[in-house]
């Protein structure tokens, strides 16, 4: 195909075991700049582990992860942490919001970690909440939000720092189809506008259909178009 996006994140021959259970057995994947890729597969096929390796949350036992031309899997922990804070955004099924903080503070947190003053951080956070239609809930705590609202706040938190890659692990796993549609539309729309790439983990084909292409995982190995042609 013509004008393939430049690979931003490249994983090769990833191997990873949990205790003695193999989760990844030579998975490979390329994510282009601004590209939205869905990783699908049955439960236990290694989807989440693949995301954890790519996002630098865990180190693979074998293989390599390269981000913007630099090896990621060999970086020390504090550099990985910084990378996740500045260049990556993550959205999980739930649990990424601090229950005691208000919605706006949860979104402002990554900015404050980067050294932005509280007021300015809250202002930017408010703008993101507005964009995702949850501005009214900015003073609410995560426990007081509906599942769909909480996920949209989580999206705002993942996107507020202007990441180049957003990692989303079953972001709609706990939602009904309508809330799931809202969250996916918000995620894809915001990512396209910001030019951010998205790695989307899901077992739901309707969610995967929001992506530009699908990578299928089977028993820890990528089948189909894992690597760009």
């Amino acid at each position: 195909m013509s004008n393939r996006p430049v690979p931003l994140l490249v994983a090769r021959d990833l191997v990873k075991s949990h205790d003695r259970t193999p989760a990844l057995r030579g998975a490979a994947l390329e994510l282009g700049e601004g590209e939205i890729v869905a990783v699908t597969g049955t439960s236990g096929s290694g989807k989440s582990t693949l995301l954890h390796c790519l996002a630098g949350i865990v180190r693979p036992d074998g293989g390599s992860v390269t981000y913007a031309g630099k090896r990621v899997d060999t970086l020390p922990e504090h550099r990985l942490s910084e990378l996740r804070r500045t260049d990556f955004g993550v959205v999980f099924q739930f649990g990424q919001l601090i229950p005691e903080l208000t919605a706006v503070d949860n979104v402002a947190l990554p900015l404050m970690l980067a050294g932005t003053a509280r007021g300015a951080a809250q202002e930017q956070a408010g703008a993101w909440l507005e964009r995702f239609g949850v501005r009214k809930q900015e003073a609410a705590r995560p426990g007081e939000l509906s599942g769909g609202q909480a996920q949209r706040v989580a999206l705002a938190r993942a996107l507020v720092t202007g990441p180049r890659v957003v990692f989303a692990d079953e972001p709609t796993g706990a939602l009904d189809s309508l809330a799931s549609e809202q969250v996916m539309t918000a995620l894809v729309g915001a990512a396209r506008e910001a030019g951010a790439a998205v790695l989307l983990i899901t077992h739901d084909a309707q969610v995967a259909a929001y992506a530009d292409r699908e990578v299928r995982l089977q028993d820890g190995v990528t089948v189909g178009s894992g690597v760009l042609a």
Binding site: H52, A55, I57, H78, S81, E82, L83, R84, R85, T86, F88, G89, V90, F92, G95, Q96, I98, P99, L109, P110, L113, R157, A158
Partner: peptide, 16 residues
């Protein structure tokens, strides 16, 4: 611990 693990995964430094 789950919530804290999610924070660390999202790049919140452990020392914070």
């Amino acid at each position: 611990r789950r919530g804290l693990a999610a924070q660390v995964a999202a790049g919140v430094p452990r020392r914070v």
